[in-house]
């Protein structure tokens, strides 16, 4: 398929960004949850230990950036390039689910909402914070797989 150079350049750029973001998210995910496994009560305190707090911030930031790069940038650009209609985020995600690029549009949207509940300064109820973080942890492989799939689709169509 032939695309204007600007679109093809942007698609390839977004794929590189997503793959980098996925790698960085995996690194933070590994460090954060190893630390939480070693000290399971660390989240229960009012004042979270500084290194843990930084890792949580990095996790939320990297999780959010990857999800936004994929869902708000790469996916709509790819749909456009393939001549598919693009619309509001939920419609694009439904289309991605139909094509098998993501498993569930609803789970994707739920993970997006969870990001607000992962912020330790704001979420005083530690049960909610902990559940949001661990649910996010379980969603990391979904984001990483989506990143690989969208990149593979891009390369198979546009080189």
């Amino acid at each position: 398929m032939t695309l204007p150079d600007s679109v093809s350049t942007r698609l390839k750029f977004l794929c590189r960004v997503a793959e980098k973001e996925a790698r960085h998210l995996l690194q933070t995910d590994e460090r954060l949850f190893a630390q939480l496994q070693q000290s399971p009560t660390a989240l229960a305190t009012d004042e979270i230990e500084p290194l843990l707090a930084e890792r949580m911030d990095a996790f939320v930031g990297r999780f959010g950036r990857l999800q936004d790069t994929l869902g708000d940038k790469l996916l709509p650009t790819l749909l456009d390039a393939l001549g598919e209609p693009r619309g509001p985020a939920i419609d694009n995600l439904d289309r991605a689910e139909k094509f098998g690029w993501i498993d569930s549009a609803d789970a994707w949207m739920a993970a997006r909402r969870l990001r607000n509940l992962m912020v330790h300064e704001y979420i005083e109820d530690r049960q909610i914070l902990s559940d949001a973080l661990y649910t996010g942890h379980a969603f990391v492989p979904v984001l990483v797989a989506a990143s690989a799939r969208l990149a593979a689709v891009t390369r198979s169509h546009f080189g």
Partner: peptide, 19 residues
């Protein structure tokens, strides 16, 4: 799962009410 449950409820209702 308080965080997950509230997110799932919000997403499903939002979908049924046109976003």
């Amino acid at each position: 799962h308080p965080a997950l449950s509230s997110a799932q409820i919000a997403v499903r209702i939002s979908r049924g009410m046109h976003g």
